[in-house]
Design a protein around this nucleic acid. Sequence first.
RNA 1: GCCGAAGUGGUGGAAUUGGUAGACGCGCCGGACUCAAAAUCCGGUUCUGGCAACAGAGUGAGGGUUCAAGUCCCUCCUUCGGCACCA
Length: 861
Amino acid sequence: MQENYNHKDIEKKQQNKWHDTKAFVVDENSPKPKYYCLSMLPYPSGKLHMGHVRNYTIGDVIARFYHLNGYNVLQPFGWDSFGLPAENAAFASHVSPAKWTYQNIDYMRWQLQSLGLAVDWSREFATCSPDYYKHQQWLFIRLYEKGLIYRKNGVVNWDPVDHTVLANEQVIDGKGWRSGAVVIKKEIPMYYFKITAYAEELLQGLDELSGWPEQVKTMQRNWIGKSVGMEVNFPYQDNSDNLVVFTTRVDTLFGVTYVAIAAEHPLAEIALKQKPELADFIASCKKGGVSEAELATQEKKGVFSGLYVKNPINNELIPVWIANYVLMSYGSGAVMAVPAHDERDFEFATLHNLPIKPVVRPGDSELDLPLKAPYTEKGILFNSGQFDGMDFNKAFSAFAEYLKQHNLGQAKTNYRLRDWGLSRQRYWGCPIPIIHCENCGDVPVSDSDLPVALPEDLIPDGSGSPLAKSPEFYTTVCPKCGVNAKRETDTMDTFVDSSWYYMRYTCADNSMQALDERVNYWAPVDQYIGGIEHAILHLLYARFFHKCLRDLGLVNSKEPFINLLTQGMVLADTFYREDAQGKKTWFNPSDVEVVVDEKGRELSATAKADGKAVQIGGQEKMSKSKNNGIDPQMIIEKYGADAARLFMMFTAPPELSLEWSDNGLEGANRFIKRLWRLVYEHVQNGIVKPYTSGDLSAEQKKLRTMLHQTIQKVTHDIAVRRQFNTAIASVMELLNYYSKVSLSDEMGQALSQEILEDVVIMLSPIIPHICEELFRELAPGKELLDQHWLSADLTALDVDEAEIIIQVNGKLRGKIMVAKSLSKEQVEEAAKQNVNVAKFIEGQIIKKTIVVPGKLVNIVV
RNA sequence: GCCGAAGUGGUGGAAUUGGUAGACGCGCCGGACUCAAAAUCCGGUUCUGGCAACAGAGUGAGGGUUCAAGUCCCUCCUUCGGCACCA
């Protein structure tokens, strides 16, 4: 065995071996139980970043752990390779999105392979390849036929200068990112998935997802936003039609003092005819982006439309206001306002001097009038005619009954969730397989004509979709009647690509079918790992798609992901200099020298290049804009993949954000070298059979107990808690003690052999390269990947004494070792004998004593 | 604005079911080895007082529940994620 650890040789050697022996290529013909471990597929942005390294290391640790536990583990990999960045890169550097994307994929695949992931690369695919998206188009047509896709108008961000639709992130302060023009809301026809048809099932299904973090389920519940209420009709003044509003607080109907409608509402058009001066306001509502964050933070504005509707309960005339915060695409585009009992309405009414009419009061007191703040609790009705004195539930049914009888409303369950608009006016995406025919309307492309191939040689110019300007693409004939027709030029939202890819991995070699029976062997995914930023959209869309595909008979499970782990971001220090204009130049942490005080606090920093001061900017998410990215490739070159993996797993639990630290990485590397040396020293003394039985010194016995406690802890931390940092810490503790105990005798050598073999197996999911190498030295002729995960020896865990802590009034006053056989009373007595404890209870009256067996005694005086 | 998290020594974090706050690592301090340095190894390291034993304080702020609170409840502050066309 070599004395010194050389990561380059070892890692290359193991990776070649795994590749040559197809160690992680799997199929369905295994007697072992299956385990599908999946990390979210990356966007091929160009280079691997530390967030990827973290994500894929977590997945790999879990995959390797289950492999050792006797599972048939599938860990596939692919690329989410459609999307905006390729178009932006193409626009900037005149390379086609296809070329840019495929180059990125090749480079990143090479980078990933140097991480030593236990991935079945034979199943790899990119979502931008026709082999993938032709099946997606086929699925689209099936869903279209089933009525789960429909077309309607939707609102988008429109850049009036560049004549293009902007993504929300391309709208900055209400202006287009390139043109700087004020963005306007524009209605265009789009296709929608009817996700609301599954709202209830998506909501109910969350209750069964016990392997998902509670916070993610809560976010999804709130996103779906089920509310039980009523649809109430407010008749127009001339009775020509009704204004329909949805409310969960029909009990406040007598308190309605105005209604607010969207600028696009049909009633607003009627108002405009009678009152032309509304045009300016209606136009101003169309300014700005469509994102909810922008709408919710903008100043709330409204004008009186000149029209009135009738309150259905008492025929009172209610003024109709046009407001910028009501959007046509949300609900019915109209809300009833009850300023006395709603925060937003109260604010708006106060601003515009609208009446505030209280109709609900607390059960046990009167309201302070006039109201200084809205009373938003459910209470007892007053000022409400025949409904006076009713509580919320009674009032709700009474109003429902009344409105229904008079044909003025009905009970309704509403969801905040809206249908999923899937059309994108972009080039680099999956073409929507629809043909627009003057005779036949929207006609799906015939299955035999799939894929509708995306031309790969176009280069966007920043003004609208290249496909819409490409007659070679859109000119076609109607599949039904054969006349000249036009292909749809919109492409699909990239969330569609990532909504079913995890199923495609199970049968990626099947070019004839989207999915085959193998999907039911592997799906659902047993463990899914990805960023918390996907908590709602991606994960909800994938759940929706899974249910759709189930209803198409393509898969037989209900949910896509049984267990979910959401990992945190990777942060690093930022450093900058600011010029006179306030423009910041960011310095990469690797180009900066930090000065610390005697306690290690950061005092100041200088650039290595010129030795002059730079500002310390704190920890931020690694990004190009802050120039604080650390290149994983450099780290792997210098320290090896194992050190990078160990650092990532040890420095923080997976869910929390992880702060990059060069020193921390050095620490991880030190541990790896130390592990190597400990095995080297042991092997120099000669390998022996691992300890099974025989007399050990007291210290050795304690060490062996610790080994088996460590096995228990590591197993629990990885299998149940998915908390790798504490698993690693406990192995470090074990090795710290191992180094202190004398093991030079025959039994000691056997114990040393047992410990080192077990440590190498326990750490192998995290640092697989070095562990395989060390295992070969410790157990020649055996393969680590063929070993079974460890189980603790219960006899080693059987200790007969326990440390009891003694508190007086909840404060720690002493510790004693007691035999486990002692009764509660005996333990209590022993506690009182403790010298230090005696000081605190002497002369005091003992009110109460709490004894927690095996743990503590608390004496209350 | 709305929804969801997080906040613990100089620092990353640990404390798993309400029961020893600070495991493990980093940094720093001291020592060994060395001509010297690096590497490595050993010891110390929450703060205050004390030679020490020990005592007091302490988990973003303020209140509360409990024999006992980092952990549960209420109010607030700060930071981060998402908000439907970034992925």
